[in-house]
Nucleic acid binder design. Structure first.
Lengths: 128, 128
DNA sequence: CTTGACCTTCCACCTGCTGGAACCATTATC
DNA sequence: GATAATGGTTCCAGCAGGTGGAAGGTCAAG
């Protein structure tokens, strides 16, 4: 497979795949023309990383997960620990966004949204 | 006021204030010793930006909001439109995180977390 | 033979700061 | 007056996680 096929099948942009090679996730062989040649195994890994990233794992998490994934002797406890930590971080992010949403929503409701210059949103931002 | 006082009173790090000068939010006068000299007005603006940032507005949003804030003839409708757009984006982020949380939480529950190598989290990430 | 899609490398840029080095100014203490 | 702590200044580099674009090589079709 060339990079374009892998991009399509993994859902990752070709740019990103090259970047992932840069940072050492994959090491595709090269053809005589210099083109990267990917095996199923690499596609698989990239798809793994793509899913992990979309679940909010950092690149560093991915490295660990990948190592665990490839180590047949690893304990599931290690993976669970990382996932739980990630879950906690997601919860914190959600809570932060919800607080932000409440404040903003309150201000939007209070704002008439008409053609007069009076605006509670700016009044709130400018208080103090 | 020197930058340290402004940092304390606005809650923004001095580094960030210098950065905000760099990108043109404020233009403090300079004393004979080269020190930045801030007026109340600048402090006010910085606090405004700080609050807007903490509500999830981008730097670019802040520019617009500040312009509206300083324009006594602006309509509150403009501000409301920006805030509503921001609210939509916050909602989308929350929804994304919640979906992510559901998937991950499900996997964490399914994972025994013992010393055996069998791990549903990795199994899920590696499917396909 | 040319067109166009695909591939390569490299370098810069994005957001929103943050850290550090190297240096000057002010103030408090001895 | 010397010294040290605490300000302030500049500039340069870097974080995550890529993205955009230029300049050029390659391949398959018509």
């Amino acid at each position: 497979m060339n990079i374009g096929d892998v991009a399509e099948r993994s859902g990752l942009p070709a740019k990103t795949i090259r970047y992932y090679e840069d940072i050492g996730f994959i090491k595709p062989k090269r053809g005589a023309n210099g083109y990267r040649h990917f095996e199923e195994r690499e596609l698989h890994k990239l798809a793994f990383i793509g899913r992990a990233r979309s679940l909010g794992f950092t690149i560093d998490d991915c490295r660990t997960l990948l190592a665990l994934y490839e180590d047949k002797d690893r304990a599931s406890a290690d993976v669970k620990r990382i996932a739980k930590q990630n879950l906690k971080e997601i919860d914190a992010k959600i809570a932060g966004l919800q607080a932000m949403r409440a404040t903003l929503s309150h201000l939007v409701d209070a704002c008439a949204g008409d053609h007069r210059p009076d605006c509670p949103i700016l009044a709130d931002l400018g208080r103090g």
